[in-house]
Amino acid sequence: MNAVDEVRQVLGGLDPARTAPLCDDSRRGQVLARILADDRGAGTARRTVPRRRLVLAAVGAVAVAAAGGGVAVELYRQPEPAYAATPVMLTYGPPATAEPASTRLRRLAAVAAQQPMPPRPAGTVEHLESTNWFLNSSISGGRTVSAVVPQRWRSWRTDDDAGRMVKKDLPPMFRSDADRRQWKKWGGRVESSEKVHDYAAGEFYSGFRGAVPTDAAALRGWLRAGGSAPQAPVQYLEDAAQLAGVRLLNPPQRAAALTLLADLPGITVTGTVTDRAGRTGEAFSITTNAHGLPAQYTVIVEARSGTLLGYEEVLTTTAGKLNVTIPAVITYRSYLVAEYAAPPR
């Protein structure tokens, strides 16, 4: 097997595609601290998103870097596997009703559609905040060294698709000091970093520009505009999850997104759950090996408003060459803020 084939095998299941209640600054800080504290309590080495674009470059060994978050992999030739800890699995309780997922999601879509439109003071723009978790791995023959990279995303978008995106990488966490040293030796980052991207009119967040459709069929086409047709239905679930992290969805738009999910073949009810920010929701999943490794892709919905609270990916039966123990959470996103606010200065 050559290096490129090995990269494809390793990353087969890790190419996922791609609003939360309002809270004040104090609450936001508490939620972020809780999420990061939970991760450290779960272990010290782990990994997701909003769509991960993988860039491959061949330079003797093969290097793979994820643009905008995701999985970064470098192939070397060296020792044996050590297993990275991943976040504690969420605990799912009994479903809220005995209805199948398609029926329940349509009911939640109806709830969303009935919500009042969010107030919008003059001079404000779409403002969103989320916490995201990514596993970055360096693979050396039979050995993998992993770093958990928590990220905080903040964005501001104007009506003409200008705006700002701020992505802050918090200090990576490692399974051991030895992993940290090896990671640093291979050129990996071990400090916090922040990237600020300002967009001119018409350039904000490629693919999600303009008004979000309020009809499920129109939304399906809008999500894939300019791109190829998805290879599997799970792609639409991933797209909807990514959308919720970068666009403020009003009630009709949330209803369209939930109706789109209801129409996806293979979607099931996972159960009721308390998410990683301490909020109660209902979870719906698609389990598939469409991206390579068998994985469960889950969205969490708040039942009283039809708001998307979060998204997770879990490897279910095999991890390939990744140093995680199955089942393993390999991605999560928590949507913490979705509101109209004054643009940053």
Rank of each mutant, 00 (worst) to 15 (best):
residue 130 S to H: 07
residue 142 G to A: 00
residue 135 L to P: 07
residue 146 S to A: 15
residue 122 A to G: 13
residue 132 N to H: 03
residue 137 S to K: 02
residue 144 T to W: 00
residue 129 E to K: 01
residue 131 T to H: 04
residue 135 L to E: 09
residue 123 G to R: 11
residue 151 Q to T: 09
residue 127 H to K: 07
residue 131 T to A: 13
residue 125 V to A: 15
residue 148 V to S: 15
residue 128 L to K: 07
residue 145 V to F: 09
residue 129 E to L: 05
residue 157 R to I: 08
residue 157 R to W: 04
residue 151 Q to D: 02
residue 143 R to M: 05
residue 148 V to L: 14
residue 157 R to S: 02
residue 138 S to R: 07
residue 156 W to I: 09
residue 134 F to N: 11
residue 143 R to E: 11
residue 147 A to C: 08
residue 138 S to D: 14
residue 125 V to I: 15
residue 129 E to D: 06
residue 126 E to Q: 15
residue 145 V to W: 05
residue 135 L to M: 09
residue 125 V to M: 07
residue 130 S to N: 07
residue 145 V to I: 15
residue 157 R to F: 05
residue 134 F to V: 14
residue 132 N to A: 02
residue 133 W to M: 14
residue 129 E to V: 15
residue 125 V to H: 09
residue 129 E to M: 02
residue 156 W to M: 08
residue 126 E to L: 11
residue 148 V to M: 14
residue 131 T to Y: 14
residue 138 S to Q: 10
residue 153 W to D: 04
residue 145 V to E: 08
residue 123 G to E: 11
residue 155 S to Y: 01
residue 154 R to L: 08
residue 128 L to S: 09
residue 131 T to M: 01
residue 133 W to S: 13
residue 123 G to F: 11
residue 149 V to M: 02
residue 148 V to K: 03
residue 148 V to F: 04
residue 143 R to G: 05
residue 154 R to Q: 13
residue 132 N to W: 00
residue 141 G to N: 10
residue 125 V to S: 12
residue 131 T to W: 05
residue 139 I to H: 05
residue 123 G to M: 12
residue 136 N to T: 15
residue 145 V to R: 09
residue 124 T to I: 12
residue 147 A to M: 02
residue 139 I to W: 03
residue 133 W to G: 08
residue 155 S to T: 15
residue 122 A to I: 06
residue 153 W to V: 07
residue 141 G to M: 01
residue 132 N to T: 13
residue 127 H to W: 07
residue 125 V to P: 11
residue 148 V to H: 12
residue 123 G to Q: 10
residue 139 I to S: 08
residue 147 A to W: 03
residue 139 I to Y: 03
residue 125 V to C: 15
residue 141 G to C: 01
residue 124 T to F: 08
residue 134 F to S: 15
residue 154 R to Y: 02
residue 143 R to C: 04
residue 135 L to C: 04
residue 143 R to H: 10
residue 155 S to P: 00
residue 124 T to D: 08
residue 130 S to L: 11
residue 140 S to P: 00
residue 143 R to N: 04
residue 148 V to T: 10
residue 129 E to H: 07
residue 137 S to D: 06
residue 136 N to G: 10
residue 133 W to N: 14
residue 139 I to D: 03
residue 153 W to T: 01
residue 124 T to V: 10
residue 145 V to T: 14
residue 131 T to F: 05
residue 130 S to G: 12
residue 148 V to I: 02
